[in-house]
Design a protein around this nucleic acid. Structure first.
Lengths: 207, 207
DNA sequence: TTCAACAAACAGTCAAGACTGTTTGTTACT
DNA sequence: AGTAACAAACAGTCTTGACTGTTTGTTGAA
């Protein structure tokens, strides 16, 4: 039928996708191995053959989620028309950033708060995500800034707004409200390199 | 020894405090009833006498957490010296906002994403918290703004930044980095009513 | 090329432990 | 006495990981 390698790849991918789906639909608590196997259409024996412990499966799923998020983001950003208004850009980014994969990620982050082993995995992957975000932020928002700490802090601020809004959306399922918040942020000059530069200039004067 | 009412009050309070402590230390998943009883020094029989189901216990704990957060916040804000710099104020708010009770709240919010009953409880309490935050935001940041939607959006933005930074702290345990982010936000005019007004004026001109 | 030997993938069952909620019994207040 | 508060044993369900056996693919010698 197929080679061993092909079978392995197919089964592991189904398991990893099922793990993310379970994480999204049922949360970290509900992502049990029987549930994942049920979704993947794979026997528990097969699952245990490929991932000897649940930790191994989760670790692989974290990596899988990272590549998926990055691929999603870059594909959709690549398909994005030329940006004119930074407020529109923020709204566009919001539509890319939120969604299922964000909530899968949030489940992992929150679970990792009380699980040191998981936290080590998630933190390592997060560092890579943040590094990418910093490069993007540097290119788009702060092309004339060279201070790494300045770039890092600005990136964190933008990420925090998106993450915070994503968390709020759990309780207040109102996408338009979230976009209104982003418009306020844009008006305040948050996504506007000129605005930030202007603020920096005034900050410099005040010292 | 003591009256029935006193015994009931003492036991329920110990159970509720233990529930929050378990939520903080072990997460929603780890906050099992045996664990809560162990922490409270109460037998499972007593727990089940006062809270017939876990749902009841969690519901009471959500309410307990709300009163605790509000009390903490108002007590510490009351003890705060006169505010001079809004960046310092943001840093102060951060020290009040983050901490154990924030993570207990986050556990509940994330768990409520995949638990409709819990979500109804948490959303109702969240609405009350946000309403308080809006009044505070109106008084401190936007005293001259009357548009309710404007106030709501600005409040959400500030809350989103704090919540997002709190989530980031799970992976990046660096309080100083979080404060640096808040300084960037303050410099961008986010916590500065004048800055927001100025931005609004320029936005009005552009239309 | 063909077939035997081997390895990997897969399926299903089982035991140990954990959690929830019920039931039964005991102690302390009214 | 009667009732509320508490304690402990128990039943049922779920999850994890171990174990046994079967099918499928790979390798190498004749």
């Amino acid at each position: 039928m197929s080679t061993q390698a092909e079978r392995t790849a197919a089964t592991t991918e189904r398991l990893l996708d099922a793990t993310l789906a379970a994480l999204i639909d049922a949360g970290y608590r509900g992502a049990s191995t029987p549930e994942i196997c049920r979704r993947a259409g794979v026997s528990r024996g097969a699952q245990l053959h490929h991932f000897r412990t649940k930790q191994e499966l989760v670790a692989a799923a974290v990596e899988h989620l990272f590549t998926k998020r990055v691929a999603d983001l870059e594909r959709r950003i690549g398909a994005c028309p030329t940006v004119i208004d930074l407020a529109d850009a923020a709204s566009f980014l919001w539509s890319v950033y939120t969604g299922d994969t964000y909530y899968a990620w949030l489940e992992l982050v929150v679970a990792s708060r009380t699980d040191a082993e998981l936290r080590a995995l998630v933190a390592a992957v997060d560092a890579r995500l943040v590094a990418r975000a910093e490069r993007l932020c540097h290119a788009v928002l702060l092309p004339h800034v060279d201070d790494a700490r300045e770039i890092a802090a600005t990136t964190r601020l933008v990420l925090a707004i998106f993450d915070g809004l994503g968390t709020h959306q759990i309780l207040l399922r109102d996408d338009e409200a979230a976009r209104a918040v982003l418009r306020v942020a844009a008006r305040a000059g948050l996504f506007d390199s000129a605005g930030i530069s202007r603020s920096r200039a005034s900050a410099a004067r005040s010292t």
